[in-house]
């Protein structure tokens, strides 16, 4: 099921939450809406789900070319997963997942046996087979979010919408669930939109990302392409650490791993090593530039680190491998 967002506007009082949004999501795709808080990404997701409505007179939302703009949320067949799970705490895990099937009109309702079968299949999919009888409050955050996902999937939605699904979880669980979600998507191939403010999460999970800022889409494309070829300084800065140099005419941005350091090189910009932080595969070095009063961040792989060890106070030469230049408008 493909999703077309066509010329959507949304204002809250005087605040423009969404400003002329056009977005097309291909059937079976996994697209991340990425942006800082307040950029309008959650609002857009809620409008797609039918939990919010765009301004009167603005454009349309279509599923597979079918206009659903004025269709109620209950009729859109959308699976929505909330940041804080929004589970029904008074129901067992089993009943939570079965909820979407039980509220169907009598004629479309599956038999008790079918419901049981489907719920058990989903419990297996989220790797919580033996948790059906528990209540949500007895489970960890990661488990609860997986149940919320199973509950959304139980109704076989045409579209899966995830609103910062891992935002409330700790870093390790988050990484695990990310990988699991990616796998899950490869298994079931339901069109998915993921809203997140975590660029690493977006780039890792999604086929494509759309970067939002101030209610506008700044850039849209495949994850790697957006990272390698940002169209403006905001996108570049948002997608990762950068060293920024600007003058009246332009802003130059350099990623920390695109800088090389040499100890004995007559030419180049000189600097002094201020601090060395070497844990894991990447060594992070802060260098004080001598020509400009400026501290820059450099990242080196461990292979380079072993060949050319550096310590605080060393005099080095700085060379830039790749830079992004954005002229000021």
């Amino acid at each position: 099921m493909s999703i077309q967002v066509n010329n959507i506007h949304k204002t809250f009082g005087k605040f423009k939450a969404l400003d002329q949004i056009d977005l097309e999501i291909p059937s079976g795709g996994l697209v991340a809406l990425l942006g800082p808080s307040g950029s309008g990404k959650t609002t857009l997701l809620r409008i797609i789900a039918g939990l919010d409505f765009a301004d009167a007179g603005s454009g349309t939302i279509s599923f597979n070319g079918l206009d659903v703009t004025s269709l109620a949320a209950a009729k859109r067949k959308v699976g929505f997963v909330f940041q804080h799970y929004a589970l029904f705490n008074h129901m067992s895990v089993f009943e939570n997942i079965a909820f979407g099937l039980r509220v169907r009109p009598k004629s479309e309702q599956p038999s008790e046996l079918e419901i049981e079968e489907r719920v058990h299949k989903l419990l297996k999919l989220i790797k919580l087979e033996n948790f059906g009888k528990r209540f949500p409050k007895q489970l960890s955050g990661g488990q609860r979010q997986r149940i919320a996902l199973a509950r959304a999937l139980a109704v076989e939605p045409q579209v899966l919408l995830l609103d910062e699904p891992f935002g409330a979880l700790d870093a390790r669980v988050r990484r695990e669930l990310r990988r699991w979600l990616r796998q899950l998507h490869e298994e079931i191939h339901v069109t998915t939109i993921l809203v997140t403010h975590d660029q690493e999460e977006a780039l890792e999970i999604a086929d494509e990302v759309a970067i939002l800022n101030h209610g506008k889409i700044e850039q849209r494309g495949r994850s790697q392409a957006v990272y390698d070829f940002p169209t403006n300084a905001f996108v570049c800065e948002f997608l990762g650490d950068v060293n920024s140099f600007s003058n009246e005419k332009q802003t130059t941005l350099v990623r920390p791993h695109e800088i090389e350091l040499y100890r004995h090189e007559p030419s180049g910009i000189e600097g002094v090593v201020r601090s060395v932080n070497a844990f894991g595969a990447v060594e992070r070095i802060e260098v004080d530039l001598l020509c400009e009063k400026k501290l820059i961040l450099v990242e080196r792989s461990s292979a380079v680190k072993e060949k050319h060890p550096l310590s605080t106070g060393d005099l080095v030469c700085v060379k830039v491998r790749k830079e992004f230049i954005f002229p000021h408008a």
Binding site: L51, A72, A74, V78, A86
Partner: peptide
């Protein structure tokens, strides 16, 4: 959000009220 979750799962008003 719990109410919205029920609605997006297809529950009507009465079902949302009595079940959730």
């Amino acid at each position: 959000e719990v109410e919205e979750a029920a609605i997006s799962l297809g529950a009507d008003r009465l079902q949302t009220f009595f079940r959730v």
